[in-house]
Amino acid sequence: MSSLARLGAAALALGLFAAAIWLVWFGWDDVPYDVWQVIGCGLFICVASVAARVWAGRGVVVLAGAATVGFAIPWGLYAASTDDSGLWVVGLVLLLAGSFIGLVVLLMVAGAVLRRSPHQDA
Rank of each mutant, 00 (worst) to 15 (best):
M1L: 12
A5C: 03
R6A: 13
L7K: 00
A10N: 06
A11C: 03
A11F: 00
L12F: 11
L16A: 13
F17P: 04
I21P: 00
W22V: 03
V24I: 11
F26W: 12
P32W: 07
V35Q: 09
G40C: 06
V47N: 02
S49L: 02
V54L: 10
A56F: 07
G59T: 13
V60E: 07
V61H: 12
L63W: 02
G65M: 04
G65T: 06
A66V: 08
V69F: 08
G70T: 12
F71D: 01
A72W: 05
L77A: 12
Y78E: 10
Y78A: 09
A80I: 09
S81V: 02
D84E: 13
D84N: 12
S85L: 13
S85C: 11
G86P: 07
L87H: 13
W88T: 00
G91K: 03
L94T: 04
L95A: 06
L95W: 01
L96T: 01
A97T: 14
I101C: 07
V105Q: 05
V105A: 14
L106N: 02
L107T: 05
M108S: 10
A112Q: 12
A112I: 08
V113F: 09
S117A: 15
S117G: 04
Q120G: 07
D121T: 15
D121R: 13
A122F: 14
